[in-house]
Design a protein around this nucleic acid. Structure first.
Lengths: 212, 212
DNA sequence: GAATTAATTGAACGTTCGTTTTAATATCGT
DNA sequence: ACGATATTAAAACGAACGTTCAATTAATTC
Protein backbone atom coordinates (compact mmCIF):
# COMPACT_ATOMS: atom_id res chain seq x y z
CA UNK A 1 0.00 0.00 0.00
CA UNK A 2 0.99 3.62 -0.24
CA UNK A 3 -0.91 6.90 -0.06
CA UNK A 4 -4.23 6.48 1.71
CA UNK A 5 -7.51 8.01 0.64
CA UNK A 6 -8.26 11.34 2.26
CA UNK A 7 -4.69 11.83 3.45
CA UNK A 8 -3.73 15.45 3.99
CA UNK A 9 -0.33 16.74 4.99
CA UNK A 10 -1.54 19.56 7.20
CA UNK A 11 -3.97 17.41 9.10
CA UNK A 12 -1.37 14.71 9.59
CA UNK A 13 1.19 17.18 10.89
CA UNK A 14 -1.32 18.65 13.34
CA UNK A 15 -2.25 15.16 14.50
CA UNK A 16 1.42 14.32 15.02
CA UNK A 17 1.96 17.42 17.14
CA UNK A 18 -1.03 16.80 19.32
CA UNK A 19 -0.26 13.12 19.81
CA UNK A 20 3.38 13.89 20.51
CA UNK A 21 2.55 16.43 23.22
CA UNK A 22 0.25 13.98 24.93
CA UNK A 23 2.61 11.02 24.70
CA UNK A 24 5.70 12.93 25.78
CA UNK A 25 3.81 14.49 28.69
CA UNK A 26 2.61 11.07 29.78
CA UNK A 27 5.64 8.86 29.19
CA UNK A 28 8.52 11.26 28.63
CA UNK A 29 10.46 12.09 25.49
CA UNK A 30 12.97 9.27 25.75
CA UNK A 31 10.32 6.71 26.60
CA UNK A 32 8.09 7.61 23.67
CA UNK A 33 9.13 5.72 20.55
CA UNK A 34 8.50 6.95 17.06
CA UNK A 35 6.56 3.77 16.39
CA UNK A 36 4.34 4.44 19.40
CA UNK A 37 3.72 7.97 18.21
CA UNK A 38 2.95 6.74 14.69
CA UNK A 39 0.47 4.19 16.04
CA UNK A 40 -1.28 6.92 18.03
CA UNK A 41 -1.58 9.03 14.90
CA UNK A 42 -2.71 6.02 12.87
CA UNK A 43 0.22 6.00 10.49
CA UNK A 44 3.46 4.14 9.87
CA UNK A 45 6.60 5.36 11.61
CA UNK A 46 8.26 6.31 8.35
CA UNK A 47 5.51 8.81 7.60
CA UNK A 48 6.55 10.94 10.59
CA UNK A 49 9.81 11.78 8.87
CA UNK A 50 8.00 13.62 6.14
CA UNK A 51 7.13 16.31 8.70
CA UNK A 52 9.97 16.23 11.20
CA UNK A 53 13.47 15.24 10.09
CA UNK A 54 14.41 13.83 13.50
CA UNK A 55 12.79 13.05 16.83
CA UNK A 56 14.63 15.95 18.42
CA UNK A 57 13.36 18.33 15.75
CA UNK A 58 9.86 17.35 16.73
CA UNK A 59 10.56 18.03 20.41
CA UNK A 60 12.21 21.34 19.67
CA UNK A 61 9.32 22.47 17.48
CA UNK A 62 6.82 21.70 20.22
CA UNK A 63 8.86 23.58 22.80
CA UNK A 64 9.61 26.60 20.66
CA UNK A 65 6.01 27.12 19.69
CA UNK A 66 4.89 26.69 23.26
CA UNK A 67 7.28 29.37 24.45
CA UNK A 68 6.28 31.66 21.60
CA UNK A 69 2.64 31.14 22.54
CA UNK A 70 3.37 32.06 26.14
CA UNK A 71 5.20 35.24 25.16
CA UNK A 72 2.46 36.23 22.73
CA UNK A 73 -0.25 35.58 25.30
CA UNK A 74 1.51 37.86 27.74
CA UNK A 75 2.09 40.58 25.14
CA UNK A 76 -1.63 40.53 24.43
CA UNK A 77 -2.65 40.55 28.09
CA UNK A 78 0.01 43.01 29.29
CA UNK A 79 -1.65 46.22 30.51
CA UNK A 80 -0.26 49.63 29.59
CA UNK A 81 -0.05 52.53 32.01
CA UNK A 82 -1.03 50.34 34.93
CA UNK A 83 0.18 50.16 38.52
CA UNK A 84 2.63 47.45 39.57
CA UNK A 85 -0.17 45.67 41.43
CA UNK A 86 -2.37 45.67 38.35
CA UNK A 87 0.48 44.47 36.16
CA UNK A 88 1.31 41.73 38.64
CA UNK A 89 -2.33 40.65 38.70
CA UNK A 90 -2.38 40.47 34.92
CA UNK A 91 0.85 38.45 34.89
CA UNK A 92 -0.45 35.94 37.41
CA UNK A 93 -3.81 35.58 35.69
CA UNK A 94 -2.26 35.13 32.27
CA UNK A 95 0.36 32.69 33.53
CA UNK A 96 -2.11 30.45 35.34
CA UNK A 97 -4.71 30.53 32.58
CA UNK A 98 -2.13 29.70 29.92
CA UNK A 99 -0.53 26.91 31.91
CA UNK A 100 -3.76 25.25 32.91
CA UNK A 101 -5.05 25.44 29.36
CA UNK A 102 -1.84 23.90 28.01
CA UNK A 103 -0.84 21.62 30.82
CA UNK A 104 0.69 18.94 28.67
CA UNK A 105 2.73 21.29 26.52
CA UNK A 106 4.02 23.03 29.64
CA UNK A 107 5.00 19.70 31.10
CA UNK A 108 6.99 18.94 27.99
CA UNK A 109 8.71 22.32 27.91
CA UNK A 110 9.68 22.08 31.56
CA UNK A 111 10.68 18.45 31.83
CA UNK A 112 12.40 17.60 28.58
CA UNK A 113 14.93 20.40 28.30
CA UNK A 114 17.81 17.99 28.80
CA UNK A 115 16.94 16.16 25.61
CA UNK A 116 17.75 19.20 23.50
CA UNK A 117 21.10 19.88 21.89
CA UNK A 118 23.10 22.63 23.63
CA UNK A 119 22.28 25.25 20.99
CA UNK A 120 18.57 24.53 21.08
CA UNK A 121 18.55 24.37 24.86
CA UNK A 122 20.09 27.83 24.92
CA UNK A 123 17.47 29.08 22.52
CA UNK A 124 14.56 27.85 24.64
CA UNK A 125 16.12 29.08 27.86
CA UNK A 126 16.60 32.49 26.31
CA UNK A 127 12.89 32.69 25.56
CA UNK A 128 12.06 31.57 29.08
CA UNK A 129 14.41 34.10 30.64
CA UNK A 130 12.88 36.90 28.59
CA UNK A 131 9.44 35.95 29.85
CA UNK A 132 10.61 35.78 33.47
CA UNK A 133 12.34 39.12 33.09
CA UNK A 134 8.92 40.71 32.67
CA UNK A 135 7.94 39.53 36.12
CA UNK A 136 11.17 40.76 37.67
CA UNK A 137 10.56 44.19 36.15
CA UNK A 138 7.10 44.35 37.69
CA UNK A 139 8.44 43.33 41.09
CA UNK A 140 11.27 45.86 40.87
CA UNK A 141 8.92 48.68 39.93
CA UNK A 142 6.60 47.78 42.77
CA UNK A 143 9.46 47.59 45.25
CA UNK A 144 10.87 50.95 44.15
CA UNK A 145 7.43 52.54 44.38
CA UNK A 146 7.07 51.07 47.89
CA UNK A 147 3.84 49.31 47.04
CA UNK A 148 5.55 45.91 47.35
CA UNK A 149 7.90 44.88 50.11
CA UNK A 150 10.34 42.35 48.68
CA UNK A 151 13.60 41.03 50.06
CA UNK A 152 15.13 39.86 46.79
CA UNK A 153 13.54 40.54 43.43
CA UNK A 154 15.16 37.69 41.52
CA UNK A 155 14.47 35.15 44.20
CA UNK A 156 10.87 36.27 44.63
CA UNK A 157 10.30 36.03 40.88
CA UNK A 158 11.60 32.45 40.83
CA UNK A 159 9.49 31.52 43.85
CA UNK A 160 6.35 32.97 42.27
CA UNK A 161 6.91 31.26 38.95
CA UNK A 162 7.57 27.90 40.58
CA UNK A 163 4.45 28.33 42.68
CA UNK A 164 2.23 29.31 39.77
CA UNK A 165 3.56 26.77 37.30
CA UNK A 166 3.04 24.14 39.97
CA UNK A 167 -0.70 24.19 39.37
CA UNK A 168 -0.23 21.93 36.36
CA UNK A 169 1.06 19.19 38.63
CA UNK A 170 -2.12 18.77 40.62
CA UNK A 171 -4.85 20.68 38.80
CA UNK A 172 -7.37 18.56 36.93
CA UNK A 173 -10.25 20.28 35.13
CA UNK A 174 -13.65 19.54 36.54
CA UNK A 175 -12.52 18.61 40.01
CA UNK A 176 -13.04 20.39 43.30
CA UNK A 177 -11.98 23.85 42.15
CA UNK A 178 -12.70 25.82 39.00
CA UNK A 179 -10.01 27.67 37.10
CA UNK A 180 -11.44 30.95 38.35
CA UNK A 181 -11.29 29.83 41.99
CA UNK A 182 -7.73 28.59 41.64
CA UNK A 183 -6.67 31.81 39.94
CA UNK A 184 -8.32 33.95 42.62
CA UNK A 185 -6.61 32.04 45.41
CA UNK A 186 -3.20 32.20 43.72
CA UNK A 187 -3.72 35.89 43.11
CA UNK A 188 -4.31 36.61 46.77
CA UNK A 189 -1.38 34.40 47.79
CA UNK A 190 0.84 36.27 45.34
CA UNK A 191 -0.24 39.68 46.60
CA UNK A 192 0.38 38.71 50.19
CA UNK A 193 3.73 37.15 49.30
CA UNK A 194 5.01 40.38 47.74
CA UNK A 195 3.55 42.40 50.61
CA UNK A 196 1.20 44.35 48.37
CA UNK A 197 -0.67 47.00 50.32
CA UNK A 198 -4.00 45.98 48.80
CA UNK A 199 -3.49 42.49 50.17
CA UNK A 200 -2.36 43.26 53.70
CA UNK A 201 -4.86 46.04 54.30
CA UNK A 202 -7.98 43.88 54.05
CA UNK A 203 -6.35 41.35 56.32
CA UNK A 204 -5.70 43.95 59.01
CA UNK A 205 -9.21 45.19 58.44
CA UNK A 206 -10.65 41.73 58.91
CA UNK A 207 -8.58 41.19 62.02
CA UNK A 208 -9.90 44.42 63.43
CA UNK A 209 -13.44 43.37 62.64
CA UNK A 210 -12.93 40.00 64.24
CA UNK A 211 -11.62 41.39 67.47
CA UNK A 212 -14.59 43.73 67.85
CA UNK B 1 39.34 -11.64 33.92
CA UNK B 2 36.97 -11.76 36.84
CA UNK B 3 37.09 -10.41 40.37
CA UNK B 4 39.44 -7.45 40.66
CA UNK B 5 41.80 -6.68 43.51
CA UNK B 6 40.27 -4.58 46.26
CA UNK B 7 36.72 -5.20 45.10
CA UNK B 8 34.22 -4.83 47.90
CA UNK B 9 30.48 -5.29 47.54
CA UNK B 10 29.43 -2.54 49.89
CA UNK B 11 31.69 0.04 48.34
CA UNK B 12 30.57 -0.95 44.86
CA UNK B 13 26.90 -0.66 45.79
CA UNK B 14 27.42 2.77 47.34
CA UNK B 15 29.33 3.88 44.25
CA UNK B 16 26.51 2.64 42.03
CA UNK B 17 23.89 4.57 43.99
CA UNK B 18 25.83 7.79 43.93
CA UNK B 19 26.70 7.54 40.26
CA UNK B 20 23.11 6.60 39.40
CA UNK B 21 21.67 9.63 41.21
CA UNK B 22 24.02 11.95 39.40
CA UNK B 23 23.52 10.41 35.96
CA UNK B 24 19.74 10.16 36.23
CA UNK B 25 19.53 13.74 37.49
CA UNK B 26 21.66 14.93 34.59
CA UNK B 27 20.39 12.84 31.68
CA UNK B 28 17.18 11.29 32.92
CA UNK B 29 16.37 7.71 33.82
CA UNK B 30 15.50 6.56 30.32
CA UNK B 31 18.50 8.27 28.79
CA UNK B 32 20.98 6.74 31.22
CA UNK B 33 22.14 3.32 30.06
CA UNK B 34 23.36 0.62 32.36
CA UNK B 35 26.63 0.58 30.42
CA UNK B 36 27.04 4.30 30.99
CA UNK B 37 26.39 3.84 34.68
CA UNK B 38 28.82 0.95 34.87
CA UNK B 39 31.52 2.99 33.15
CA UNK B 40 30.99 5.81 35.64
CA UNK B 41 31.41 3.36 38.52
CA UNK B 42 34.40 1.74 36.83
CA UNK B 43 32.86 -1.68 36.43
CA UNK B 44 31.26 -3.88 33.78
CA UNK B 45 27.54 -3.57 33.18
CA UNK B 46 26.89 -7.12 34.28
CA UNK B 47 28.30 -6.35 37.72
CA UNK B 48 25.45 -3.93 38.40
CA UNK B 49 23.01 -6.81 38.43
CA UNK B 50 24.60 -8.26 41.52
CA UNK B 51 23.22 -5.32 43.47
CA UNK B 52 20.03 -4.38 41.66
CA UNK B 53 18.05 -7.02 39.79
CA UNK B 54 16.70 -4.54 37.23
CA UNK B 55 17.17 -0.94 36.23
CA UNK B 56 13.78 -0.07 37.66
CA UNK B 57 14.69 -1.67 40.98
CA UNK B 58 17.63 0.69 41.13
CA UNK B 59 15.43 3.70 40.46
CA UNK B 60 12.85 2.61 42.99
CA UNK B 61 15.50 2.05 45.66
CA UNK B 62 16.89 5.53 45.14
CA UNK B 63 13.44 7.08 45.34
CA UNK B 64 12.23 5.11 48.32
CA UNK B 65 15.29 5.89 50.39
CA UNK B 66 15.11 9.53 49.43
CA UNK B 67 11.53 9.77 50.61
CA UNK B 68 12.35 7.87 53.78
CA UNK B 69 15.20 10.28 54.41
CA UNK B 70 12.87 13.24 53.98
CA UNK B 71 10.31 11.83 56.40
CA UNK B 72 12.98 10.98 58.94
CA UNK B 73 14.56 14.40 58.68
CA UNK B 74 11.20 16.00 59.39
CA UNK B 75 10.45 13.67 62.29
CA UNK B 76 13.77 14.68 63.82
CA UNK B 77 13.25 18.39 63.21
CA UNK B 78 9.55 18.49 64.10
CA UNK B 79 9.02 20.60 67.22
CA UNK B 80 6.70 19.45 69.98
CA UNK B 81 4.33 21.76 71.82
CA UNK B 82 5.05 24.60 69.46
CA UNK B 83 2.86 27.26 67.87
CA UNK B 84 1.68 26.85 64.28
CA UNK B 85 4.08 29.60 63.21
CA UNK B 86 7.00 27.84 64.86
CA UNK B 87 6.01 24.53 63.36
CA UNK B 88 5.66 26.12 59.93
CA UNK B 89 9.09 27.69 60.29
CA UNK B 90 10.58 24.35 61.19
CA UNK B 91 8.87 22.70 58.20
CA UNK B 92 10.15 25.30 55.76
CA UNK B 93 13.67 25.23 57.14
CA UNK B 94 13.86 21.46 57.11
CA UNK B 95 12.37 21.21 53.64
CA UNK B 96 14.71 23.71 52.05
CA UNK B 97 17.81 22.43 53.83
CA UNK B 98 17.05 18.85 52.88
CA UNK B 99 16.28 19.64 49.26
CA UNK B 100 19.29 21.84 48.70
CA UNK B 101 21.55 19.28 50.30
CA UNK B 102 20.12 16.50 48.15
CA UNK B 103 19.31 18.35 44.96
CA UNK B 104 20.06 15.51 42.61
CA UNK B 105 18.12 12.91 44.53
CA UNK B 106 15.15 15.27 44.75
CA UNK B 107 15.32 15.84 41.02
CA UNK B 108 15.18 12.10 40.48
CA UNK B 109 12.28 11.58 42.87
CA UNK B 110 10.27 14.37 41.29
CA UNK B 111 10.99 13.84 37.61
CA UNK B 112 11.15 10.08 37.13
CA UNK B 113 7.94 8.98 38.77
CA UNK B 114 6.49 7.92 35.43
CA UNK B 115 9.20 5.31 34.98
CA UNK B 116 7.93 3.34 37.97
CA UNK B 117 5.47 0.48 37.78
CA UNK B 118 1.97 1.38 39.02
CA UNK B 119 2.41 -0.36 42.37
CA UNK B 120 5.72 1.29 43.07
CA UNK B 121 4.44 4.65 41.90
CA UNK B 122 1.59 4.33 44.39
CA UNK B 123 4.05 3.47 47.12
CA UNK B 124 6.21 6.54 46.53
CA UNK B 125 3.21 8.82 46.15
CA UNK B 126 1.84 7.52 49.43
CA UNK B 127 5.05 8.53 51.18
CA UNK B 128 4.94 11.93 49.55
CA UNK B 129 1.33 12.49 50.50
CA UNK B 130 2.06 11.59 54.11
CA UNK B 131 4.84 14.17 54.18
CA UNK B 132 2.64 16.84 52.63
CA UNK B 133 -0.13 16.02 55.06
CA UNK B 134 2.09 17.30 57.85
CA UNK B 135 2.16 20.71 56.22
CA UNK B 136 -1.59 20.76 55.72
CA UNK B 137 -2.08 19.97 59.39
CA UNK B 138 0.11 22.89 60.38
CA UNK B 139 -1.76 25.24 58.08
CA UNK B 140 -5.12 24.02 59.33
CA UNK B 141 -4.13 24.47 62.97
CA UNK B 142 -2.87 27.94 62.24
CA UNK B 143 -6.02 28.87 60.36
CA UNK B 144 -8.26 27.56 63.11
CA UNK B 145 -6.27 29.43 65.73
CA UNK B 146 -6.58 32.59 63.61
CA UNK B 147 -2.85 33.12 63.44
CA UNK B 148 -2.85 32.36 59.72
CA UNK B 149 -5.30 33.64 57.17
CA UNK B 150 -5.64 31.06 54.43
CA UNK B 151 -8.22 30.71 51.69
CA UNK B 152 -7.74 27.02 50.96
CA UNK B 153 -5.52 24.80 53.07
CA UNK B 154 -4.85 22.13 50.47
CA UNK B 155 -4.14 24.60 47.73
CA UNK B 156 -1.87 26.68 49.93
CA UNK B 157 0.08 23.59 50.94
CA UNK B 158 0.64 22.65 47.30
CA UNK B 159 1.68 26.19 46.43
CA UNK B 160 4.16 26.33 49.30
CA UNK B 161 5.68 22.96 48.48
CA UNK B 162 6.06 23.82 44.80
CA UNK B 163 7.63 27.13 45.76
CA UNK B 164 10.07 25.62 48.24
CA UNK B 165 11.04 22.61 46.16
CA UNK B 166 11.67 24.99 43.28
CA UNK B 167 14.91 26.13 44.86
CA UNK B 168 16.65 23.05 43.49
CA UNK B 169 16.00 24.26 39.96
CA UNK B 170 18.05 27.42 40.21
CA UNK B 171 20.08 27.18 43.41
CA UNK B 172 23.78 26.47 42.97
CA UNK B 173 26.00 26.30 46.05
CA UNK B 174 28.61 29.00 46.27
CA UNK B 175 26.83 31.50 44.08
CA UNK B 176 25.24 34.81 44.97
CA UNK B 177 23.25 33.62 47.96
CA UNK B 178 24.10 31.30 50.83
CA UNK B 179 21.77 28.58 52.01
CA UNK B 180 21.00 30.64 55.11
CA UNK B 181 20.06 33.69 53.06
CA UNK B 182 17.84 31.68 50.75
CA UNK B 183 16.15 29.97 53.67
CA UNK B 184 15.55 33.28 55.46
CA UNK B 185 13.99 34.84 52.37
CA UNK B 186 11.78 31.83 51.73
CA UNK B 187 10.76 31.84 55.37
CA UNK B 188 9.59 35.42 55.22
CA UNK B 189 7.80 34.82 51.91
CA UNK B 190 6.05 31.82 53.44
CA UNK B 191 4.95 33.72 56.51
CA UNK B 192 3.56 36.54 54.43
CA UNK B 193 1.84 34.11 52.07
CA UNK B 194 -0.07 32.45 54.90
CA UNK B 195 -0.84 35.83 56.44
CA UNK B 196 1.03 35.05 59.64
CA UNK B 197 0.64 37.86 62.15
CA UNK B 198 4.35 37.96 62.89
CA UNK B 199 4.99 38.62 59.21
CA UNK B 200 2.40 41.30 58.52
CA UNK B 201 2.94 43.21 61.74
CA UNK B 202 6.54 44.26 61.06
CA UNK B 203 5.55 45.31 57.58
CA UNK B 204 2.82 47.64 58.86
CA UNK B 205 5.31 48.87 61.43
CA UNK B 206 7.89 49.61 58.74
CA UNK B 207 5.29 51.39 56.64
CA UNK B 208 4.37 53.54 59.60
CA UNK B 209 8.01 54.37 60.15
CA UNK B 210 8.55 55.23 56.51
CA UNK B 211 5.65 57.67 56.36
CA UNK B 212 6.90 59.57 59.37
C1' DG C 1 -6.76 11.48 -19.29
C1' DA C 2 -1.91 11.65 -19.04
C1' DA C 3 1.79 13.62 -16.28
C1' DT C 4 3.23 15.30 -12.06
C1' DT C 5 3.25 15.93 -7.25
C1' DA C 6 2.06 14.62 -2.48
C1' DA C 7 1.53 11.22 0.95
C1' DT C 8 2.23 6.89 2.80
C1' DT C 9 3.64 2.02 3.16
C1' DG C 10 6.53 -2.01 4.20
C1' DA C 11 10.83 -3.70 4.69
C1' DA C 12 15.25 -3.15 6.09
C1' DC C 13 19.59 -0.88 8.15
C1' DG C 14 22.98 -0.63 11.82
C1' DT C 15 23.07 0.47 16.65
C1' DT C 16 22.02 0.28 21.28
C1' DC C 17 19.27 -1.30 24.87
C1' DG C 18 18.48 -4.19 29.40
C1' DT C 19 19.64 -8.48 30.76
C1' DT C 20 21.64 -13.39 31.12
C1' DT C 21 25.14 -16.81 31.14
C1' DT C 22 29.49 -18.72 31.92
C1' DA C 23 33.84 -18.64 33.61
C1' DA C 24 37.63 -16.75 36.18
C1' DT C 25 39.78 -14.57 40.11
C1' DA C 26 40.16 -12.37 44.78
C1' DT C 27 38.97 -12.74 49.51
C1' DC C 28 37.79 -15.04 53.77
C1' DG C 29 36.96 -18.72 57.20
C1' DT C 30 39.08 -22.70 58.81
C1' DA D 1 47.19 -24.10 52.64
C1' DC D 2 42.68 -24.86 50.97
C1' DG D 3 37.97 -24.95 49.98
C1' DA D 4 33.93 -21.92 49.90
C1' DT D 5 32.05 -17.79 48.61
C1' DA D 6 31.74 -13.27 46.88
C1' DT D 7 32.68 -10.43 43.06
C1' DT D 8 33.65 -9.23 38.50
C1' DA D 9 34.79 -9.85 33.37
C1' DA D 10 33.65 -11.06 28.80
C1' DA D 11 30.62 -12.40 25.52
C1' DA D 12 26.29 -13.00 23.90
C1' DC D 13 20.98 -12.73 23.77
C1' DG D 14 16.72 -11.09 21.60
C1' DA D 15 14.24 -6.99 21.36
C1' DA D 16 13.60 -2.34 20.41
C1' DC D 17 15.43 1.89 18.90
C1' DG D 18 15.73 6.01 15.31
C1' DT D 19 16.09 6.30 10.67
C1' DT D 20 16.38 5.35 5.47
C1' DC D 21 14.82 3.83 0.99
C1' DA D 22 12.34 2.13 -2.79
C1' DA D 23 7.86 1.14 -4.19
C1' DT D 24 3.02 2.43 -4.54
C1' DT D 25 -1.11 4.90 -4.60
C1' DA D 26 -4.09 9.27 -4.03
C1' DA D 27 -4.62 13.85 -5.35
C1' DT D 28 -3.62 17.60 -8.35
C1' DT D 29 -2.25 19.90 -12.59
C1' DC D 30 -2.31 20.67 -17.38
Amino acid sequence: MARTTGSDGEKTEAAIREAAVNLIARFGYEAMSMRQLAAEVGVQAAALYRYFPTKEDLLFTLMREHMQGLSQAWEAAKPVNASPAQRLSAYVENHIAFHIERRHATHVSNMELRSLSPERLTQILRMRTAYEKELRAILRDGAEADVFSIDDTGLTAMALIQMMTGVIVWFRPGERLSIAEVTATYLSMTMRLVGAASATAPRVFLDAQRTL
